[in-house]
Design a protein around this nucleic acid. Structure first.
Lengths: 140, 140
DNA sequence: AAGAAAAAGGCAACATTGTTGCAAAATTTT
DNA sequence: AAAATTTTGCAACAATGTTGCCTTTTTCTT
């Protein structure tokens, strides 16, 4: 139950009540290398939780900076665990995301830093999101 | 009616029947500097077209390479006109996209080329999508 | 540890978004 | 101008996301 302690700690540190659904959903993320879409979570959670609970749990995790969203072209937001640097409301996800066209998984490539983008005069950047599409390591 | 000829030509060149809804929707894109989400189009078209028609029209335009999609974090795909280099099925949008947090508009910054991304060993990139979020020229 | 206060969960109902099949209408082809 | 093809609009449906409310669970207080 090492994992359980870790999960509970993470929730408490973010001043979230420790509940069954939160622990379960958080565990899914920890067990998973890639990102999860809302639908994946509903399925993997095993019919146990209400759809509403999943939505609210994910929202809470995003608000607290435990997970972050990854935009994709197919209109299904993916969620992935944030690294420790994330704090409430502010993400410091200066890494890029990789979507595999073969297995469909989405990965955070934490070692690949988002490049500097030189914008035209008058534009101010707050956040740069890079999503690379292709074939992942495992599928090659 | 200069515009009308331009629109008709564009449709014909892509071997699409020239119909009222297609002309109208294409016109919306041409009049617009930014990108449009499906919802915007339904609204701006003025209750005239069936929702299904809008979906199918957008799909047809994407298939033909007339417009391209821009992924965003809020689960609403945006569409924007492609430049001439796009051909059926293959887009060559090597430009970045900018989403303004103030006015909500999405722009194609055609002059800003997507950077080279150095991926970890084993990953192969097919397409790189860069979305920058911030404040646009007009809102500053 | 027990009760009070606060937070989260689950249900129902609803809103929005996207899809499919089919007949009517419009467009293109001949 | 008629035939063939394509597109449209409707209806019905499926999937996705939201809100209010009451019950249950968790946390706080003593």
């Amino acid at each position: 139950m090492q994992m359980d302690i870790q999960i509970t700690g993470l929730l408490k540190r973010n001043s979230l009540s420790v509940t069954g659904s939160r622990k379960k959903i958080l565990q899914l993320f920890l067990q998973q290398s890639g990102a999860l879409a809302h639908g994946d979570i509903e399925k993997k959670a095993g019919e146990k939780f209400d759809r509403v609970t999943v939505y609210r749990t994910l929202q809470a995790f995003v608000d607290k900076g435990i997970i972050h969203t990854i935009p994709t072209a197919d209109n299904s937001i993916r969620y992935a665990l944030c690294k420790d640097e994330c704090s409430e409301g502010h993400h410091h996800d200066h890494h890029i995301h990789f979507v595999c066209n073969n297995c469909g998984n989405t990965y955070c490539l934490d070692d690949v830093v988002t490049p500097e983008i030189r914008l035209p005069k008058g534009y101010v950047a707050n956040h740069v999101e890079v999503v690379v599409e292709g074939v992942c390591k495992n599928c090659k």
